[in-house]
Amino acid sequence: MTFDEMRDRIAHGQGFIAALDQSGGSTPKALRGYGVEEGDWEGDEQMFGLIHEMRQRIIEAPCFGNGKVLGAILFEKTMEGTSGGKSVPARLKERGIVPFLKVDKGLEDEREGAQLMKQNPNLEAMCARAKDLGVFGTKMRSVIKSANPVGIKEAVRQQFAEGARILSCGLVPMLEPEYDITSADRAEGEKIMLEAIEEGLEALPESQQVMLKLSIPKYAGLYSGLTKHPRVLRVVALSGGYSTEEACSELAKNPGMIASFSRGLLQDLRKQQSDEEFDGTLSSAIDRIHAASVA
């Protein structure tokens, strides 16, 4: 797929984006969920090797290339790896799946009710490498924990500022100011965040577009305007701690948003499953998430 073909697939495709981007801090938890205990590896190299084997198994599963998965978000080490005898981005595109790269370097400590992203001086170099490998876009996450206008606006401002750096490298940024779904004042805070996002979009040049990855809103339809905004390529939803069933039920109430689930996609996969069992389990999750995304 060319860059323009990838853009068209993301903008108009009927499906969802898989999140395969667990990084160093979240990898042990992801492996435990897959049935691999911490005593099964020694050191980071073996740990990352095991998570790469899991991701290869997902990428190569027959159901993963059935057209319902539009894109996949990758951890940097996954992007640099291989699957099916090719680089992971090339193999994904061969299967009709648009590759994205997670580019944030983790979170700062909470202040003013939000966790901003850590500084990323090597962002342009990461983007250049990703573009060389055929990646279409990026993803970066910050977290909002309370309806504090100062923290919310700063988190959104940082997302757009980093997004501008990514756009200058020729990639499409997926901005992810995640709102903690356990927050008691989420409904109020999401309205503040929406206003900040709209301000950021209006400041973008008309020729530029970003993607948005947001928590499924407390009140259905809150982000419907964003799904139609000319400077938004696509609005995707994170599962945010919901189970697959919960996330799909909530997402289906928000037409125009599509899924970008990690836990919601992977929660029932196990290393011990036969290839047939693995593909059947993954296929069931893909079908449920796809149905909620096109509802």
Score class of each variant (00 low, 15 high):
237 A>M: 13
249 S>H: 13
258 I>W: 00
272 Q>R: 06
198 E>I: 05
267 Q>K: 13
282 L>H: 08
206 E>R: 12
212 L>N: 09
215 S>H: 01
275 D>I: 04
269 L>M: 13
273 Q>K: 07
284 S>F: 12
280 G>F: 07
236 V>W: 07
227 T>Q: 03
266 L>I: 11
269 L>G: 13
241 G>Y: 04
202 E>A: 14
217 P>T: 08
268 D>F: 14
282 L>V: 08
255 P>H: 01
288 R>E: 14
241 G>H: 03
269 L>D: 13
233 L>I: 04
260 S>K: 09
243 S>I: 07
270 R>Q: 15
208 Q>R: 14
198 E>Y: 02
244 T>G: 03
208 Q>K: 14
246 E>C: 08
263 R>N: 10
247 A>R: 03
277 E>M: 04
262 S>F: 05
225 G>L: 00
269 L>I: 13
197 I>E: 05
235 V>A: 02
276 E>T: 15
282 L>K: 08
211 M>T: 08
254 N>T: 10
226 L>Y: 01
242 Y>D: 07
250 E>V: 03
239 S>Q: 05
243 S>C: 07
218 K>E: 15
257 M>A: 14
230 P>Q: 10
202 E>D: 12
215 S>Y: 02
225 G>W: 00
249 S>V: 04
245 E>C: 02
255 P>D: 01
214 L>E: 11
276 E>H: 11
248 C>W: 06
240 G>W: 02
272 Q>S: 14
275 D>N: 13
289 I>H: 10
226 L>K: 00
229 H>M: 02
256 G>I: 06
251 L>S: 02
236 V>L: 12
217 P>D: 06
261 F>Y: 15
273 Q>V: 07
271 K>H: 09
271 K>P: 01
271 K>Q: 14
230 P>G: 09
254 N>F: 10
239 S>K: 06
250 E>Y: 13
